[in-house]
């Protein structure tokens, strides 16, 4: 089942990529191939790869029919919701990164994440989150000269 979805996605992606390739304006300059030829090859290559996958799916289905094994259908379970929540939380972190600044957004992100995934150790979580955010900010900006978003923090 999963492989069939990958097959459809691959074909769609190849189609979009080939379409986008055709939109690249070409100016006849220097090299005989221009900027389009290589992407065209890649688009066609991806279609061929999709064909290879289709062959594998068909062969796999034949083998499965022989052993009478049934693939389990995808079921939405709790841990999938957890993954989505982590992605949403990390997206919020990225969103806040420049707006609140590195120190605040990182401290908040770490507090929330450790609260859920390292339960029952409040003191440890709060200390790690705050200390990591402050110390890493100071080390990277002051010692290593790496630029990190300051945000609404005055230093």
């Amino acid at each position: 089942m999963v492989d069939r979805i990958i097959f459809v996605c691959t074909v769609l992606l190849a189609a979009v990529y080939l379409w986008a390739t055709s939109k690249i304006p070409t100016l006849a300059l220097g090299d005989p191939l221009g900027p389009k030829a290589f992407p065209q090859m890649l688009g066609i290559g991806l279609l061929i790869a999709a064909g290879m996958l289709l062959a594998e799916i068909i062969r796999g289905a034949r083998n499965k029919a022989a052993t009478e094994e049934k693939s389990e259908p995808f079921r939405f379970e709790k841990h999938h919701a957890v993954i989505l929540a982590i992605i949403a939380g990390t997206a919020a972190y990225v969103f806040a990164f420049e707006r609140l600044g590195y120190m605040l957004s990182t401290a908040l992100y770490l507090l929330v994440m450790t609260h859920f995934f390292n339960r029952g150790r409040m003191l440890m979580n709060v200390l790690t989150s705050v200390l990591f955010a402050v110390i890493s900010y100071l080390v990277f900006t002051q010692v290593l000269g790496v630029n990190l978003a300051r945000g609404i923090v005055p230093f």
């Binding site: 994440m113 450790t114 995934f117 390292n118 339960r119 150790r121 440890m124």
Partner: peptide, 8 residues
């Protein structure tokens, strides 16, 4: 604890 390690 891995619950701290991964967010870091």
């Amino acid at each position: 604890p891995q619950g701290i390690l991964y967010p870091l």
